[in-house]
Design a binder for these strands. Structure first.
Length: 258
DNA sequence: CCCTATGTTCCCAA
DNA sequence: CTTGGGAACATAGG
């Protein structure tokens, strides 16, 4: 599930733990990840995030990009032995970084610096209502699908799309072409509010999300609509519904999201 | 046992 | 170029 707030949580925690450290060994356990080599002896210069993608920047203009997809986790581990579903181990002198992934969708890529990822703007860096209004004129998509399109905006997934649209009191099926500039400004404010609150809580642990140290996040206690089907809406008292939109479970309040 | 669900994205067809 | 549907995979629950 890791969406922007969860990846940001990992990014901040990794900065404290491995920046300045040197990779002593890597071990790829799941061959599906491909070949990961040439990292031994390299020092970690920085950790970056773009949308849901996370990069460990190494010396020599080299970076290691992770995408955790559905069930990928990064865990800082001091003990020996492997936990179930461990797919990759990166060893440092003071501990080991484990990539754990039940469903094996996560990807790891070694990249030489240069061409960036084919992603839209990160909404915490730049959420320009005017630019989004402009892009929306050429799209037939419903707002929820538009927010989740990573080439347009990078980092919003199913949980936070539902939460943002409730915060903005907008119907997830509303066509983006019909949104006014003011409505885009409202979406921008709701996006920042929801994502920042989730980051402050270190993510949403509705399922198996854990942070770098194996701890649950706290944002599941603050969810407005996600996973609340049949419960009462905090905004208007209506009943939260769940319906499919482009194949994804979509939680919303039909009485106050219009 | 079978069917559906799950936080994501890629690939392909229309 | 854009969009919708199925696939990639593992596990849980009805």
């Amino acid at each position: 599930m890791p969406e922007l707030p969860e990846v940001e949580t990992l990014c901040r925690q990794l900065q404290k733990v491995i920046v300045g450290a040197e990779i002593s060994k890597t071990r790829t356990i799941d061959p599906k990840l491909g070949t990961i080599k040439g990292l031994k002896g390299k020092q970690v210069n920085a950790i970056h995030r773009h949308g849901k993608a996370l990069a460990i920047e190494l010396e020599g203009n080299c970076s290691l990009w992770f995408h955790l997809r559905m069930t990928g986790r990064l865990l800082w581990h001091n003990g020996n032995g492997l936990l179930p579903h461990t797919r990759l181990v990166i060893s440092f002198s003071q501990g080991r970084l484990l990539l754990i992934d039940i469903r094996r969708f996560a990807t790891v890529t070694v990249r030489k610096q240069g061409n960036g990822l084919p992603l839209g703007k990160d909404p915490l860096v730049d959420f320009s209502p005017a630019h989004l209004w402009d892009m929306a004129q050429y799209s037939t998509l419903p707002i929820k699908s538009f927010l989740m399109d990573q080439r347009r905006i990078a980092g919003i997934g199913n949980i936070y799309a539902c939460e943002i649209l409730h915060q903005a009191r907008m119907d997830p099926w509303r066509r983006v072409k019909s949104l006014s500039l003011e409505e885009w400004q409202g979406i921008g404010e709701a996006t920042r509010k929801v994502l920042k609150r989730a980051i402050a809580c270190r993510g949403t642990s509705v399922s198996n999300w854990r942070d770098l140290f194996g701890n649950k996040g706290g944002h599941q206690e603050h969810l407005l609509v996600y996973a609340r089907e049949g419960a009462g809406c905090y905004t208007c008292g209506g009943t939260i519904k769940r319906q499919k939109l482009s194949g994804r479970g979509t939680y919303f309040c039909p009485s106050c999201q219009t």
